[in-house]
């Protein structure tokens, strides 16, 4: 383990910027979001959870998959994917790393290999940052995570106040040490890091009851519960678009004349168009079916397929819902049903 004093962060990131595209938490319009940084000064590492999630690094809201053009006799198709990118996700919270691990189950499984996702994911080094002050809306410890979980990180940092305790956790992470100008961490630093992690974990005040949730939902498909749950939901896409694990998408051709491009973009189960069929029939005609889909997908269907809950407890959907429809309360209510 090493220690990076705070004043050495800037030169360290500068060095990384020479060899990599660096994506990290930054401030946009007064709030933290994840984006590509061009200079170390743009990084805002003392953030709680960013508003937009780092999932965009692997699964952008909108991407061109390929472009095509007809020459009259034949059609030329060209992939739009850039395969040579070397990137770092810098300062990502453990919950968001866990989200990436869950997305891996979808986009990089034995059955389906999504080259667009895999290419971006494989070319990215993940620099985790422990979460010293989890928000009151955080419940990562209820869903197999933790504010200092190292799972999925290549390189992990703990904010000690005067510097960062740095751990290399994979071969990929080791590469970052090349530009590293820190010293070995002292025993005291390590102990301090442990104390910070323990106190953060103890500080998680929100809990959801994940045990038995899948089975409970199994019996609730047609319960009257859903008739009322959706009433105050506005049917916007905030909770899905700001969710680090939501991954539904739509594909469309943007074509004009003899050429065009196929794009993939996020979709939301709360939107009317989501399951609208060509015939005009919509199997999810109202908010009732749509919000049920959101809950079921996260806590039941995903569990069926991947043996994990598709929620990392980051609390974004709680904080940003315009009508304060709180997933913690929804889960409590489900258990009470």
């Amino acid at each position: 383990m090493k220690k990076l004093p705070k004043e050495k962060v800037k030169p360290f990131v500068e060095k990384l910027l020479q060899d990599y595209e660096v994506l990290g938490p930054m401030e946009t319009a007064g709030f933290a979001s994840f984006g590509r940084i061009m200079s170390p000064g743009e990084l805002k590492l003392n953030y709680q959870n960013s508003k937009k999630t780092p999932k965009e690094a692997f699964f952008p809201q909108w991407e061109v998959m390929f472009r095509y053009r007809s020459t009259g006799q034949s059609v030329e198709v060209k992939s739009a994917e850039d395969t040579g990118r070397r990137r770092i996700l810098f300062g990502i919270r453990p919950c968001d790393i866990r989200a990436a691990l869950l997305l891996d189950l979808v986009f990089d499984s034995l059955d389906f290999k999504d080259p667009y996702y895999i290419n971006k994911r494989k070319g990215t080094i993940v620099v985790g940052l422990g979460c010293n002050h989890p928000a009151s809306t955080c419940f990562c410890t209820s869903v197999n995570g933790g504010p200092f979980s190292r799972e999925g990180a290549d390189f992990f940092m703990t904010d000690l106040g005067d510097g960062y305790l740095v751990e290399v956790l994979s071969q990929k992470g080791r590469k970052l040490l090349r530009g590293f100008d820190g010293k070995e961490a002292s025993e005291e630093d390590k102990e301090r890091a442990k104390a910070i992690a323990d106190s953060a974990t103890r500080g998680i005040s929100s809990v959801i009851e994940a045990d038995g949730l899948m089975e409970k939902l199994e019996k609730l498909t047609e319960a009257p519960f859903w008739d009322f749950l959706h009433e105050k939901c506005l049917g916007c896409g905030i909770c899905t678009y700001l969710c680090p694990t939501c991954h539904c998408f739509d594909m469309a051709d943007e074509a004009f004349d003899l050429k065009g491009q196929r794009v993939r973009c996020w979709d939301s189960c709360l939107f009317p168009l989501f399951t609208l069929e060509t015939s005009g029939h919509n199997p999810r005609p109202t908010g009732r079916e749509r919000i049920r889909q959101r809950i079921m997908h996260k806590f039941n269907y995903f569990f069926y397929t991947h043996k994990a809950i598709a929620c990392v407890g980051c609390g974004r959907c709680i904080i940003h819902c315009p009508v304060n429809l709180d997933i913690r309360r929804v889960i409590d209510d489900i258990h009470r049903e």
């Binding site: 937009k52 506005l234 916007c236 896409g237 899905t240 700001l242 939301s268 939107f271 009317p272 168009l273």
Partner: peptide, 24 residues
Amino acid sequence: SRCIRCYACRQACPMCYCAECFVD
């Protein structure tokens, strides 16, 4: 440029009641 097209503005608005919004 910050818009994520979540349509929360539309959904929160009492006057946005079109049975099918043009974007849909």
